[in-house]
């Protein structure tokens, strides 16, 4: 593949991720450098969508330095829970479920680094149960995102009239939810 700006071989395959749109760029080393310098910290575009605008000038570059084949393989990768493919995510700019941050951690990391200039959260952490808050919230999230997959399997099982399997999944969902969702306070329920 040739560079979009000159006759040289394109070695950088960049995907610009903007709110609701995706733009592919294939550039030689020199032009990629020019391009990346331009976009770095550039003007954030105003967006009608509340707050989603912030990608702006810091829009993430994906797959810098990856070959087209590698990118194609990456695009096929799907989330075990919600089924979204990385390609769908790149197209829509929205992830499918919280588990995507685990499933696509390696792929998302450079994107997140590009948007935020950091990859480590240093702010507040859930404090529901003070002693084990952090660990609990993290493992709670890990188990609860499993419910997304179990729920889908349950629906599929009902469709093919495998009620045994559907019941199994329903019980599994209940067990996870009982473990991780804080108990309701019945007296204040309307």
């Amino acid at each position: 593949m040739k560079c979009q700006q000159c006759e040289k071989q394109a070695v950088f395959h960049i995907t610009e991720l903007e709110t609701g749109a995706v733009r592919e760029l294939h550039l030689c080393e020199d032009h990629a450098r020019v391009y990346l310098n331009q976009t770095e910290g550039g003007g954030g575009s105003a967006d009608e969508a509340e707050d989603a605008a912030a990608a702006g000038g810091a829009a993430g570059q994906l797959g810098v330095g990856q070959t087209a084949d590698e990118l194609a393989a990456l695009d096929q990768k799907a989330c075990d829970m919600c089924g979204i493919t990385f390609f769908e995510f790149r197209n829509q700019g929205r992830l499918g479920c919280p588990h995507d941050y685990v499933q696509f951690a390696k792929e998302l990391e450079p994107l997140i680094a590009n948007i935020h200039g950091a990859t480590e959260h240093t702010g507040r952490r859930p404090s529901r149960s003070p002693t084990t808050a952090e660990a609990a919230a993290a493992s709670g999230t890990a188990e609860l995102t499993g419910v997304i997959g179990l729920r889908q399997e349950m629906k599929d099982a009902i469709v093919r009239e495998d009620y045994e399997k559907a019941k199994e999944n329903r019980d599994a969902i209940r067990a996870i939810e009982d473990r991780w969702i804080p108990p309701a306070r019945p007296e204040s329920q309307e």
Binding site: A52, L95, P98, V102, H121, R125, A137, T145
Partner: peptide
Amino acid sequence: AFHPRFGYLTACPT
């Protein structure tokens, strides 16, 4: 939804 490294998880990575 919370991740020990990425923090509160949102639909858009921004």
